[in-house]
Amino acid sequence: MASLLEIQDLHVNIGEKPLLNGVSLAIRQGEVHALMGPNGTGKSTLAYALMGHPGYAVTSGKILLDGTDVLGLSTDERSRMGLFLAFQYPVAIPGVSVANFLRTAINARRRALDPQDKGIPVPEFRKMLKAKLEMLQIPVEFAGRYLNDGFSGGEKKRIEVLQLAVLLPKFAVLDETDSGLDIDALRIVASGVDAISGPDLGVLVITHYQRILNYIKPQFVHVMFDGRIVESGGADLALRLEEQGYDWIRQKYAAAGTAKA
């Protein structure tokens, strides 16, 4: 049975400042959702809150993965349950190679299932990694480079998608994976995601622009404004935003936001 990720009336603060004011969203495994909206309306906050970033405090609401509330779980437990975040700004870990990092991440998952697990055999890991690198058109030398250390913006995004391809979560949030990419890099990264997605993966694509959605076709599009999802629709909603921009959203919903403040 397909897994279900449900976000119910989620309120999130940084310090005293409210950033999410009641977000509700349900994603099934196999579905692709797009989350759009102007800057600073809470899209990345939702991504961080899902993964349990310690700087983001959930003040009310629930995040249910197949009925289990993950809010009481640590970031690594959420990851091992099947949540994944492709970061907008991936962090460098100097001295740790991409391959070593990925193997450690795979083994952490295996050990969580079976404390006696000896880890993935090296030949099996190499073979798998080589296949994924090829799929994403990443030169094999990247496996030996230090994780995100001195990588260009585009290289970092590709390595995020590589991690997605290797770790095979149930749900992946792509936080502006398209930002900072030129058109060729965007095509490679987005087709990579498209190749990974299927009935076993639910995807939430966070973006400002419609163009990534030409490659990763969403069934559902949501618009976020002022910490809430204010519009939801099909793929045509993304096209409307591309044509008309966000001004109509601002005009339609700014009053409500101001009134509340």
Partner: peptide
């Protein structure tokens, strides 16, 4: 946070850094 979001425990993440 980055390393833990990939499933490493806090101890594994610190050790890796």
């Amino acid at each position: 946070f980055y390393l833990r979001s990939r499933g490493l425990t806090e101890e594994e993440a610190v050790t890796m850094v």
